[in-house]
Simulated scan of single mutants.
Amino acid sequence: MLKSSLLLAALLLPVFSAANADDYKAGDLLVSDPWSQELPPNAPTVAAYFVIHNQGDSADRLVSVDTPVAAEAQLHEHVMQGDLMKMQKVDTVAIPAKGDLTFAPMAYHVMLLDLKDRSKLRDGQHFPLTLNFEKAGPVQVEVSVQKAPPMATHEHMHAQ
């Protein structure tokens, strides 16, 4: 009896571990660790971040994003122009085959504009964000709102 219980527990451990992870799958893409920093008082915008892992043999593109907490969600990147770091809107973001792409502060990110539901943007809250990929299609993730950025301790939290 004890042996079969241990075997069952060992078989179910990966299922429970996967269910607890902040990973979302769409085709060959895996979206990990979606988060946003807590909205400061009176801030007109907020950004969302995550990591996209492309496990497939062909590239894909993130073509748009949607969320019910904002009237508009845009893809943005930070670029150096002369001596200044500038944020700019981009139409799509390429996800390389067999590669990772990190959305992070001072890099690619999702900018949420004209915020509708500020109560979902406080520490400890979550909100849905739909990522629309050219090939993999849509995937809805739950963005975790935090007072401070998470520690980059996962092995996949590296720049592209």
Rank of each mutant, 00 (worst) to 15 (best):
L6S: 07
L6G: 06
L8W: 04
A9Q: 08
A9H: 03
A9K: 04
L12S: 04
L12P: 08
L12G: 04
P14I: 00
P14H: 00
P14Q: 00
V15L: 11
V15I: 08
V15T: 09
F16R: 13
F16K: 11
F16T: 08
S17K: 10
A18S: 15
A18W: 14
A18M: 12
A19K: 14
A19R: 15
N20S: 15
A21G: 12
A21R: 15
D22R: 14
D22Y: 10
D23L: 04
D23T: 06
Y24L: 02
Y24D: 02
Y24P: 10
Y24M: 01
K25F: 06
A26Q: 04
A26W: 02
A26N: 04
G27L: 04
D28N: 13
D28G: 13
D28S: 13
L29S: 06
L30P: 11
L30C: 07
L30E: 05
L30S: 09
V31D: 03
V31L: 05
V31W: 03
V31P: 10
S32W: 04
D33V: 03
D33W: 07
P34Y: 00
W35R: 11
W35F: 14
Q37A: 10
Q37N: 11
E38Y: 09
E38M: 11
E38W: 09
L39Y: 03
L39T: 01
P40K: 09
P40S: 08
P41M: 00
N42G: 12
A43R: 13
A43H: 10
A43L: 09
